[in-house]
Write a protein that binds this DNA or RNA. Structure first.
Lengths: 200, 200, 200, 200
DNA sequence: CATGAATGAGTTTTCATTCAT
DNA sequence: AATGAATGAAAACTCATTCAT
């Protein structure tokens, strides 16, 4: 492992580093981390394998930065959209959120799978995902409380909601089950989410 | 890849094959499939690498049999417990089911992670899990209908319920989030599941 | 390598040894010596791998005995047919000889190829073939001299004749060249052989 | 098998690839293809095993390139010498051709054996040899016809001639038979070849 | 800075041979 | 004698990482 990792400051160098991350993103998404080798990454990025090791400690380090990009692409938009909430009008909000998340998943589902597959064996990925979910849950929960939400167990409710939204998106994206009608399922999910937050 | 796979018939040979599967089970669970090599499996099983290739086509074939064991240990008990239902008394059933599934997950969570991590890159694992979920969903749905359930969208409801139970078990097992109170979450989940099936 | 090789004397044991040789014959002929393993030989012979090592020192030893069979099947018939000569009537003899040899080659060409392919890397096979050719050449040459042949260089002529007959048989069996008419070639070869022995 | 084979462009890299081919040439010639392993080839070439797999798909691919070298060393010179013919003066040509071929065989006889030994079990080698013989035969035949040769069956005659020249060279190189006088045999062969082409 | 050739330990897999039963 | 399970050394091949140019 290289002792010193260059922090690219020149524009060209930064672009080069980004090219590598993008190449890693696509290859990891398409073939998985363990089925991708550094030569392929370098080639796809249009750089030499040597230069990869100037910008990254090792192959795992590329993964870590790819993970950051994924987070920026997928998680942040969700959080941001939720932070625009200005009232507890769940009936209006939830359908939009669900559609947005499904859409984001459709665009990034390969990467999602590739990264999740590493949570078991690559601690750094696992930690990142947990931290991320924590952030999302906390920010949403805080927002709700700010808006006057007072049903109790807000963290638990938000966390479940987030997970269920992910679960449904996942189902939609993979569409593995012939016997499932996803429109009907969507209605049921929306009902569940509403019941989760609204007192009955 | 060896042409012919030995079907062990003698007691000792069957035990040896099982030793290999067990060794694979533990190592895959602990370190992941890609971080385990055949030499380690053989060593842990107390056999030579050669004999591994008499009983299995290749390393992936060991995984497939490990997967079978996992399925027998985790999925089948759930399905069996559900098939004993004799009335649509969800209030009584659901808490038991949830406890059972959480318990099974706690016992097998490493393997669960290791196997799920392969769904992205190893088609045979993915297919197995999908087939399994289909079976579980269909058997439960059929049972409900037999018992007179008539709310509609039974497949979608059952599928969601199964996923949510898994999701909750997963949360309990990993217990990653300090801000979550799992007892409270359990109550919320039970409520969600009941609402999913009971007309309001 | 086993220290002691059993000399089978009982009928059943002899049959078993022959089964192994036959199995080796076919497998070596079909797939080549290096592409055949002892398990395949044993299986085809209907015996255990262990028993193979009671009757043969090692895999090479099976080859040696297969070679003997080949010699008995292919070379001896030729020699015997030639030893029946009772006059130097080449016009009558040569067409028959050529037809016979081509026929034998057609029946055994796989083995011929498999064995010849080993002459380079397995000395024992090479030695056997040389010894064999020597025998054939000497026996034919002696026969010719006995019958009054007196053109000189009889060994050289016979040796060449033998080689040319083999060469032609080989051509006929493999039939690799679309531009060759084997009937025409046969006439030319017969003419060559006759000219080789008959003074002009 | 590596996806991409490096095409060495720098002088040193080309030299290295050639070193590997040379090492393969010698080892295959000395010990045979199946008795040579990639580590030996790499060691003899003074490189690592890894680099071998940058320049060649696999071990067989080394053989294929060795075969090319052999062809360039042995077959092409023969063909070229024959294409210089400017008249059908067989009496002058044939002795020279025979001497040349014998000489080339003497220099390359180990490789010749090693390669021929693979025709049975390695299709690519077999195909190459057949194609090569076809070329030689066709080019010589065409040349003869251009020079006015009109005896008929020119392909069959040339093909036989080529085979007989090889056969004789082979005999000379291995010199296995004590009872053969190769000078006498040479005279006989030359007579045969002449008779093959000259009307009597 | 940049390249991509080079390394070599590590991985999967095979198979002649042995040996417990 | 006979079995076929078991061995383990050896083979082909890969790839993260380094380094000469």
């Amino acid at each position: 492992m290289a002792d010193v990792i260059r922090q690219p400051k020149q524009k060209r160098a930064i672009e080069k580093k980004n090219k590598i991350i993008e190449a890693g993103y696509q290859l990891f998404a398409d073939d998985g981390y363990f089925n991708t080798n550094t030569e392929q990454i370098a080639k796809k990025a249009g750089v030499s394998t040597g230069i990869l090791y100037s910008y990254f400690h090792d192959k795992l380090d590329v993964l870590v930065e790819v993970l950051d990009i994924y987070v920026n692409n997928v998680y942040l938009p969700i959080v941001k959209s939720l932070e625009k909430l200005d009232a507890l009008n769940f009936d209006e909000i939830l359908p939009n959120v669900l559609d947005n998340v499904v859409c984001l998943h459709k665009e990034n589902h390969n990467m999602h799978e590739a990264l999740h597959s590493l949570t078991a064996s690559v601690p750094v990925v696992n930690d990142k995902f947990i931290e991320l979910q924590d952030q999302v849950t906390k920010r949403i929960a805080t927002k709700l409380v700010d808006l006057g939400y007072n049903l109790g167990n807000v963290f638990e409710r938000v966390h479940l909601a987030v997970e269920i939204v992910q679960l449904f998106s996942h189902e939609c994206v993979f569409d593995n089950h012939a016997y499932i009608d996803y429109q009907s399922m969507k209605s049921i999910v929306l009902k569940m989410l509403k019941d989760l937050f609204v007192h009955q």
